[in-house]
């Protein structure tokens, strides 16, 4: 998995490339651990072919952290296979998908 982060003031864009599963999710969790000073988090998942529940866990933790801090989190570029998992788990309702 490859993760590219770009910070622009209070906006942090995180581009994820590769599958997000049991093996790779610890890397994503580590990259999203410290969100201090971030008002707007954009997660670009256009390069993610699939995401298992291990990845959902990372997204939920980030979403909770951003809500607690009064910021917002937006997911962009999720392909249909990834959206399907969001829909099944109800994550489509708790995440902001653009």
């Amino acid at each position: 998995m490859e993760i590219v982060k770009q910070k622009d003031g209070g906006k942090l864009t995180v581009q994820v490339k590769g599958r997000v599963d049991t093996l790779t999710s610890p890397q994503l969790a580590a990259e999203l651990q410290d969100l201090s000073g971030v008002e707007s988090l954009v997660l670009d998942l256009s390069g993610v072919p699939y995401m298992s529940s291990a990845g959902l866990r990372c997204l939920l933790m980030s979403q909770k952290a951003m809500m607690k801090a009064g910021g917002d989190m937006v997911i962009v570029g999720a392909i249909p296979a990834v959206r399907e998992v969001f829909d099944i788990t109800g994550f489509s309702d708790i995440l902001t998908l653009a």
Partner: peptide
């Protein structure tokens, strides 16, 4: 799966999927 983000537990989703 109808709970809000604050109420959702982290985990337990794998087998459900």
């Amino acid at each position: 799966t109808s709970l809000s983000a604050e109420e959702r537990a982290v985990g337990g989703l794998g087998i459900f999927i």
